[in-house]
Nucleic acid binder design. Structure first.
Length: 433
RNA sequence: UGGGGUGUAGCUCAAUUGGCAGAGCGCCUGGCUGUUAACCAGGAGGUUGGUGGUUCAAAUCCACCCGCCCCAGCCA
């Protein structure tokens, strides 16, 4: 082993002229006879090493000729500024040592089919576009926590194993809980509502499970959702929080992930325009606008994906569509006093075809009306007893929303399908790897 | 679940009217002192998703089955 200090590729500019040691994986090699190149990725960056046959012991040159793609290596050599090298720096290699030899690597630097790549997701993660997308995801997640922390929200971790809690009982994953049926949570919302009187502003952030047999580029069976909930906030205030939240997340990504967005070839023009206020359109006005554009939609039916796309034709900013008909929405949403056919709720539609990234609402705070809605939907009353308690022991106006992390990251990165924006996607027909 | 596609070498794809199963990449061998997904020459690599049928002859036509992709519904 060498006693030369190990450094990282991202710090090479501090080491010009020094002899350093790098630990990483071989992206590719190019051997020309008397000079050769090895491109190494160490997780912080990618750098090219140059080997000159006449200046090296034969056994080191032989290592270069035999090393395979994705082998783990230790590279020792002199850091040089070099205009011809990608990244501007390169290593004049004096030693290369194979730590873990790789077998023939399945993923080549070329086009592959989706099924093949998903079968090799555990290796695909190493590719440059995947690294860029997942790094943006991590930044988005961090900015979610930072924004809410700055606004005095308290994080509440809600249970993943539940009784039948959520919006629609038909789309839950069922499991056995010591002989009793249990379900994987499809929302933490009802639980953050319970924490609201304890902390005023709360949120949960975690995986969410939906057993819907959806096969579109916008759906996963396991996805991550952040759900803020605020006491004494009405629907209008809820939307103001949402637009501030989205603006912060987008700004942070533009600021801290510029390199990743460039790798992803994301045109950031429209992202740079994102700032409050976002346009607001009532459901009723949306239907009128769609009808004016020739749609056959009728008042009362939910907006479909094509309807949403037509509405977004007129907008570069995210669009709030609010106050949907009660029948199209969940039981816990508060009736709109100005139009009792509708509920105080909103969706937030992302531009550029990315669709719904937020669903939010003011919650029904009247115990009798809530119970009536639970009965109307035929939901198991006993399961919701604790939820009704929240209205019996000091009820209060409150609102909240759920933001889908993968959809948001897909929009920010400009990727077509959200399955690339979660490290190990769970789809209807995919549980491996 | 419905509609539309698709399945050929490890990978990405060709194969005319039904007529010898092909290329590029990767891999192996040799050559080359500055490559950027290097280049040049040679080599290995196939039960054409499965079953059955039509035919002198099927990757190609027919039936059924299976996998996958896209769109829709459901939603974030």
């Amino acid at each position: 082993m060498s006693d030369i200090a190990v450094t990282e590729v991202r710090r090479l500019s501090e080491h010009v002229g020094d002899e350093v040691r790098l630990l990483g994986w071989v992206d590719t090699t190019r051997v020309h006879g008397k000079v050769g190149f090895v491109v190494v990725r160490d997780g912080t960056g990618v750098v090219q090493g140059v080997l000159v046959k006449s200046e090296l012991p034969e056994e080191i040159w032989n290592v270069l000729e035999g090393v395979t793609q994705e082998s783990t290596v230790a590279l020792t050599g002199l850091v040089k500024e070099e205009a011809r090298a990608p990244g501007g720096f390169e290593i004049g290699v004096t030693a290369i040592e194979v730590i873990g030899a790789a077998e023939e690597y399945p993923i080549q630097p070329k086009e592959h089919g989706v099924e093949f790549l998903l079968d090799h997701r555990h290796l695909w993660l190493r590719s440059s576009l995947q690294r860029a997308g997942l790094r943006v995801r991590a930044e988005v997640e961090q900015s979610i926590h930072d924004f809410l922390y700055q606004r005095d929200f308290v994080r509440i971790d809600t249970p993943i194993l539940t009784g039948a809690i959520g919006e629609h009982a038909g789309s839950l994953f069922e499991t056995d809980y010591f002989g009793v049926p249990a379900f994987l949570a499809q929302t933490g919302q009802l639980y953050v509502e319970a924490a609201c009187p304890a902390f005023r502003r709360v949120y949960c952030f975690g995986p969410t499970f939906r057993a819907e047999k959806s096969k579109t580029r916008r759906h996963l069976t396991e996805f991550w959702m952040v759900e803020p909930e605020v006491a004494f906030a009405d629907s209008a205030e809820n939307m103001r929080l949402q637009e501030d939240f989205i603006t912060y997340i987008v700004e942070r990504a533009l600021e801290r992930c510029a390199e990743e967005l460039k790798v992803l070839e994301r045109d950031t023009t429209k992202l740079e325009m994102v700032r409050p206020p976002f346009p607001r359109l009532s459901y009723t006005d949306a239907v009128a606008r769609l009808q004016a554009k020739g749609s056959e939609i009728e008042w009362g039916s939910d907006l479909g994906a094509p309807d949403e796309e037509v509405l977004m034709e007129d907008h570069d900013l995210p669009l709030f569509v609010h106050d949907y008909p009660k029948g199209a929405k969940a039981f816990y949403m508060k009736e709109n006093p100005e139009d009792p056919r509708t509920a105080l709720c909103n969706d937030l539609l992302a531009p550029e075809g990315y669709g719904e990234i937020i669903g939010g609402s003011q919650r029904e705070d009247d115990a009798d009306k809530l119970l009536a809605r639970i009965r109307e939907e035929g939901l198991p009353e006993e399961t919701y007893r604790w939820y009704l308690d929240l209205r019996r022991y000091g009820t209060f106006t409150h609102s909240g929303f759920g933001l889908g992390v993968e959809r948001t990251v897909a929009w920010i990165t400009g990727r077509h399908h959200i399955r690339e924006l979660i490290p190990f996607p769970r789809l209807m027909n995919r549980l491996y790897p």
